[in-house]
């Protein structure tokens, strides 16, 4: 089966001489949910800009399904739906017109474009705002409007550049559910985000880009396996004993009812619970101190710096 996206030795040098991409290569399989991560200025948006023709590449090859962008860019564009980082619609236009017009730009007859506009405005929960000037929409609604617009031609590859930036938690969760659903229905999704818990919750594979180079390209599971140490926070039912300790583990007492425990790779967390049990400490809840992927991300990016 053809990959959804193949990038080979892609480079981009801007007119001012800045080399944003230094020959990156990556492949995204059909049906994948792929996270493209990296710090600000790493080259994520440049890569996405090249895929949707807003940035001209300097060298390299890009193929979207069976369409090479140097041979048939219009065919490649038909496969792609793009949700950019910045709002890029006319704020004086109404959501319904914005989406129906976008359908027209993809060659759809007006009746079909309007049908799709209704379908996706409803799916994203902003149908009741269809005739409201888009400048009057909230930030979250504007984000959903851009997702609906990107889907109007029902692309096989959806690219989202920080789609949940500035969106409240409830709306972010509902967007996650929507993205999971369309991914399950067969749409390949590439996502950039600074919320690493978002990548961990949604994506199966991850590419980490830094200073214009891919520093990691693997599955999320494999990436997390590389973690050497995890820190857990334990909330206790009663106050901890004064002489409390767990042999073989580094612990930190946060307050009378809260404890941090470091678990090194190879250590079993059961030992922690066994020790706690022996000392009569009852645990009410347990959680990771920090996002695991974030820890790995910082390590990789700092390592490449």
């Amino acid at each position: 089966m053809l990959p959804a996206l193949t990038i080979e030795n892609l480079t981009k040098t801007y007119d001012n001489g800045f080399q944003a991409l230094k020959g990156i290569s990556l492949t995204v399989a059909q049906g994948d949910f792929y996270a493209l991560l990296g710090p600000n200025g790493a080259g994520k948006s440049t890569t996405i800009g090249i895929l949707c023709s807003l940035v001209n590449k300097s060298a390299g090859r890009v193929q979207v399904f069976d369409a090479d962008i140097d041979v048939d860019f219009p065919a490649a564009k038909k496969y792609i739906g793009i949700v950019p980082q910045e709002f890029n619609f006319n704020i004086f236009e109404k959501p319904f017109d914005i989406i129906a017009n976008q359908g027209g730009y993809y060659g759809m007859p007006r009746a079909l474009a309007e049908e799709r506009a209704e379908k996706y405005l409803k799916a994203l929960g902003i149908w009741d705002k269809r005739d409201t000037p888009s400048r009057a929409l909230s930030g979250g609604m504007k984000r959903r409007l851009m997702i609906a617009r990107a889907l109007v031609h029902e692309p096989k590859l959806l690219i989202l550049d920080e789609p949940t930036a500035g969106v409240d938690i409830e709306m972010r969760r509902s967007m996650w559910e929507f993205l999971k659903r369309i991914n399950a229905e067969g749409t390949t999704i590439i996502l950039t985000t600074h919320y690493l818990e978002e990548a961990e919750a949604l994506c199966r594979h991850v590419g980490i880009i830094n200073h214009g180079e891919i520093v990691e390209n693997t599955s999320i599971r494999e990436l997390l396996r590389q973690l050497q140490r995890e820190v857990f926070i334990l909330d206790c039912v009663d106050a901890l004993p004064a002489d409390f300790a767990i042999e073989g583990f580094v612990t930190r007492r946060m307050d009378d009812h809260c404890l941090e425990v470091e678990v090194e790779k190879g250590q079993a967390i059961n030992q922690v619970f066994a020790s706690l049990d022996r000392q009569g400490v009852q645990i009410a809840s347990m959680r990771n101190r920090a996002n695991r992927l974030e820890e790995m991300f910082v390590k990789l990016v700092e390592g490449a710096a």
């Binding site: 219009p74 910045e86 914005i98």
Partner: peptide, 18 residues
Amino acid sequence: YGAKFNHSVEELLVSPTP
């Protein structure tokens, strides 16, 4: 120019419209 200013010209540029 308005479309360039508010970036809505990108709606056309990313589409396959010649």
